[in-house]
């Protein structure tokens, strides 16, 4: 019962966030001066052709009407038609998303796989050489810009040693491993700074938990220090770690936009930059909404994960 109520409440706030975000994006794009139809047809366009195009793009409707048409379209999977390419935005996005999402997920998995053991190691050796080493490494990791790191990776692993391709994406129809290979360097570049942050969070969350009273109760039961950490410490430390993992996914998702530039990957990022230079605002609008939707959805899932980890939340709605 409590869990259902919690989910219901979270779902409500998810919908509200999406609604407000869509309004904000629509309003911002509406501020842009100029008429996309005349932009597309050039200066010498016939008024009749212009009017026809405007009708076709739905630009003749009122602002309110256009907003609802846009939102309604998105709900049914129709993101409108690109002003420049005259193809449905949905198709363009579907192609690109097959690069961006796997890349972000790959990076997230790498970051978690690096950070959890590193944080656990550092916390269990608090103040010793190993801990200080991990802390120093994370300071460096946080300071390195991911796109610069990407350039260095290309220089070393693609150009010097030729272990990985320097850029480009073969497409999933060329086989899974070829794609994984193409995404490996970008994923490492994205994951490293995030792993550094997550390691620090993991370490401090564990240290915080180590000072809790219930850890002492566990020791008094006869659990060894290590058992106490594994059985009682980890799950409690996961609560702050989860928050950061959720935040990181949005960082990573947005980070792909830049990393795609370095590796010439045909993802959402490249689509956005192409659309901005072509002033293809319907594409920008829809892709931005899609990314924001992804971020809000991830935060929603993190909220649900919280409740799974922490029974106290289920009652405190």
């Amino acid at each position: 019962m409590a869990m259902q109520r919690y989910i219901l409440k979270r779902t409500g706030s998810l919908i509200l966030s999406l609604l407000v975000a869509s309004l904000v994006i629509f309003t911002v794009i509406e501020i842009v001066p100029g008429d996309p139809a005349s932009f597309m047809l050039g200066i010498n366009a016939q008024p009749e052709t212009l009017a026809a195009l405007r009708a076709e793009l739905g630009l003749d409707a009122s602002k309110v009407g256009r907003y609802f048409a846009w939102v309604g379209g998105m709900l049914t999977g129709d993101f409108g038609t690109s002003y420049t390419y005259r193809t449905p935005v949905t198709e363009m996005v579907a192609d690109r998303i097959g690069v961006s999402i796997p890349l972000a997920l790959y990076a997230l998995v790498l970051s978690v796989l690096i950070a959890l053991p590193a944080g656990l190691y550092a916390a269990s050796r608090r103040g010793q050489a190993g801990d200080l080493g991990v802390l120093g490494a994370t300071q460096m990791g946080v300071a390195i810009p991911n796109f610069w790191f990407a350039m260095m990776l290309v220089l070393v692993f693609a150009i010097h040693w030729r272990w990985f391709p320097a850029g480009g994406f073969p497409g999933w129809e060329q086989g899974f491993w070829a794609c994984v290979q193409a995404l490996t360097l970008p994923a490492i570049a994205l994951a490293l700074p995030q792993a550094a942050i997550l390691t620090r969070v993991m370490r401090s969350a564990l240290l915080e938990v180590l000072g809790e009273d219930f850890m002492r109760t566990a020791r008094a039961k006869g659990l060894s220090a290590r058992q106490t950490l594994w059985r009682h410490g980890l799950r409690n430390a996961m609560i702050p770690v989860l928050t950061i993992v959720g935040l990181q996914f949005s960082f990573l998702f947005a980070g792909t936009i830049i990393i795609e530039q370095v590796f010439y990957l045909p993802g959402l990022g490249r689509l956005i930059f192409q659309s901005i230079s072509a002033r293809d605002l319907i594409v920008v609008e829809s892709v931005v909404m899609l990314i924001v939707f992804g971020v809000i959805l991830i935060n929603f899932l993190v909220d649900l994960a919280y409740a799974a980890v922490d029974p106290r939340l289920r009652n405190r709605t």
Binding site: S17, V20, A21, V24, I25, V28, I29, I31, V32, S250, F251, F253, A254, G255, I257, I258, I272, I276, L281, V284, V288, I291, V292, V295, I296, N299
Partner: peptide
């Protein structure tokens, strides 16, 4: 706080893109 949440839902880069696009 709700306003904060909304701004938070826009990844920094996406916000920059939106602003520069306009």
């Amino acid at each position: 706080m709700r306003g904060n949440d909304i701004i938070f839902a826009f990844p920094l880069l996406v916000m920059a893109i939106l602003i520069t696009a306009v």
